[in-house]
Amino acid sequence: MRLQTATRIALYATLELAGNPENQITASAIAEKYGISINHLAKVMRDLGRAGVVESVRGAGGGFRFAGNAKRTTLMDVIQIFENVRGNARAPAREPGEATPAGQALRQVLDEIDAITEATLRSITLDTMFKLIQRQRQDAAGPAPG
């Protein structure tokens, strides 16, 4: 599956903030780290703030802070702020041919894919993502010399 650019930016920003819960981090620092347009990130941060995922910190330095629980917040919680992962599941037929038996059979297959995608995204928390990120770091570093 592909995620929209805004969704990917939101996930990077949320992971960055949730991974540093004691610190406030500026949007420009996040933008620089991930090579993201600051304007695009600013809009995403507004949406994340409205959804209660992050909160902005006023005062010296300013910045943002994660406002949730990394062990309870899943990838789906962030993604669904920006897009509908379940596609058109259970929505009335709206594409040409969807009401035909062939269209319904195709819908059945696509729903199966959507259900697996949803289960995956709803079961991976930010805390689990930190472990996956750490493993990526270790793989990138290669075996310890010895």
């Binding site: 697996i116 709803r122 079961s123 928390t125 805390d127 689990t128 472990k131």
Partner: peptide, 18 residues
């Protein structure tokens, strides 16, 4: 069960993947 997201999250938190 695919819809048991809580239990799946537990197993994933222990490093299990599909």
């Amino acid at each position: 069960a695919r819809d048991n997201h809580l239990l799946m999250a537990f197993f994933r938190s222990h490093g299990m993947m599909a």
